[in-house]
Computed example of a mutant assay.
Amino acid sequence: MNENQQWAHEEIMTLIKKSPTYEDQAFYRALNQLMNKQAQRLENASGELDGRSWADKLV
Rank of each mutant, 00 (worst) to 15 (best):
N2I: 05
E3V: 09
E3H: 06
E3G: 00
N4Y: 14
N4H: 05
Q5I: 12
Q5C: 04
A8T: 03
E10T: 10
E11Y: 04
I12G: 00
I12H: 02
M13C: 09
T14W: 03
L15H: 06
L15Y: 04
L15I: 00
L15Q: 12
K18I: 08
K18V: 06
K18Y: 05
K18M: 11
K18F: 02
S19Q: 02
P20S: 14
T21M: 03
T21D: 04
Y22L: 10
Y22C: 01
E23P: 00
E23H: 11
E23S: 10
Q25I: 02
Q25M: 07
A26K: 13
A26H: 07
F27A: 02
F27Y: 12
R29T: 09
R29V: 11
N32D: 13
N32E: 08
Q33M: 10
L34V: 04
M35P: 00
M35K: 05
M35Q: 13
N36F: 09
N36G: 00
K37Q: 06
K37N: 09
K37W: 02
Q38H: 13
Q38M: 14
Q38P: 01
Q38W: 12
A39P: 01
A39Q: 03
Q40G: 05
Q40H: 10
R41H: 11
R41L: 14
R41G: 05
L42W: 04
E43S: 15
E43V: 14
A45V: 01
A45Q: 10
S46I: 13
S46M: 09
G47V: 00
L49C: 10
L49M: 13
D50V: 06
D50T: 07
D50Q: 05
G51P: 00
G51E: 15
G51C: 00
G51H: 11
G51T: 12
R52V: 11
R52E: 08
R52A: 08
W54L: 15
W54N: 15
A55V: 05
D56F: 15
L58R: 07
L58F: 14
